[in-house]
Amino acid sequence: MSVNDGAAGAPTDSPTDWVAAHTKEYLDSDGEKGHIWYKDAPTLLLTVTGRKTGQRRRTPLIYGRDGDDYLVVASKGGSDTPPEWYLNLRAHPDVEVQVGNEHFQARARDAAPEEKPRLWATMAAIWPDYDEYQKKTDRQIPVIVLERR
């Protein structure tokens, strides 16, 4: 099943002003602006399919790399509930990714228990606040591996 099955039109972007502005800058420059974000953190655009609506939804996320795979963290700032994009990709793991000016399809999966500590360390080295976010919640914050298709 492709990301676009059952979902027509352009993806919906965040209604949060600063997130929408970041996404717009990223898209308008085809990743030339917005790819490197606050505190020099690299970001990608992740497009998922809504689990209830089938609507495609796009969000910018900090990423890391593990070989050919991309990594993102479903932190929601340490909230006790996961971000909506994470719930959506759990239901529909086939996603679209834009990194800089490169666009590709990927399959998302949670990091396996044996690899998560290493991948968490990779992501915390890029965005140290992830360690603080984990301390704020009893929820085990997942690291998601995006495997190019």
Rank of each mutant, 00 (worst) to 15 (best):
S2Q: 15
V3T: 10
V3M: 10
N4S: 13
A7E: 07
A8H: 10
T12Y: 10
T12G: 05
D13F: 00
P15S: 14
T16I: 15
V19E: 11
A20F: 02
K24S: 12
Y26N: 10
Y26D: 09
D28H: 09
D28W: 08
S29Q: 02
W37S: 14
Y38L: 14
K39M: 11
A41D: 04
P42F: 13
P42H: 13
T43E: 07
L44T: 09
L45D: 10
L45C: 07
L46T: 11
V48Q: 07
R51H: 04
K52Q: 10
G54T: 06
G54C: 05
R57F: 05
R57E: 12
L61M: 15
G64E: 11
R65Y: 08
D66C: 12
G67Y: 07
S79G: 08
N88M: 09
R90D: 03
D94V: 14
D94S: 11
Q98T: 10
V99L: 12
H103C: 06
Q105H: 13
R107Q: 11
A108K: 01
A112N: 06
A112W: 05
E114V: 14
E114L: 11
E115C: 01
A121S: 14
A121Q: 14
T122C: 03
D129M: 10
D129N: 13
Y130C: 00
Y133M: 00
Y133Q: 02
Y133I: 02
K136A: 13
K136D: 06
D138R: 13
D138P: 03
I141Q: 01
I144P: 04
I144Q: 04
I144S: 05
V145Q: 09
E147C: 01
